[in-house]
């Protein structure tokens, strides 16, 4: 399965709930305001950093760029993809579930 998260972990619990209910081995893509969850060095970084062994994490590059986040500010193990990469994940990983 592919889980999508589009909310900042500082504002909503979408990422927290996704990490509680996504089956291990699933792919998770952070996009829109969700990309803040992929940043290293924040008070919320551990949410993703501590689970890179359980899930494949992806973040949408155009949303990072729009928010002034450089790729070297991203948590290790999180892969940056473009919209085409997002489509590939949706095609390859099975059912898509959105956490809003």
């Amino acid at each position: 399965m592919l889980h999508t998260v589009n909310k900042s972990p500082f504002e909503r619990n979408a990422l927290e709930s996704c990490l509680r209910l996504a089956k291990k081995g699933s792919a998770i893509i952070l996009f829109e305001d969700g990309v803040y969850g992929a940043m290293a060095g924040t008070a919320k970084s551990d949410m993703v950093a501590s689970r890179t062994g359980d899930y494949e994490f992806y973040v949408l590059g155009p949303d990072l760029a729009a928010r002034g986040i450089a790729e070297d500010q991203i948590i290790g193990g999180v892969k940056v993809v473009d919209y085409g990469g997002f489509v590939d994940l949706a095609a390859d990983k099975g059912t898509v579930q959105s956490w809003l």
Binding site: L21, K23, S98
Partner: peptide
């Protein structure tokens, strides 16, 4: 248990 149910879904609406 719910994680298994979600994982077996074909279409997820809402969220």
């Amino acid at each position: 248990e719910l994680a298994e149910v979600l994982d077996q879904s074909d279409v997820v609406i809402g969220g």
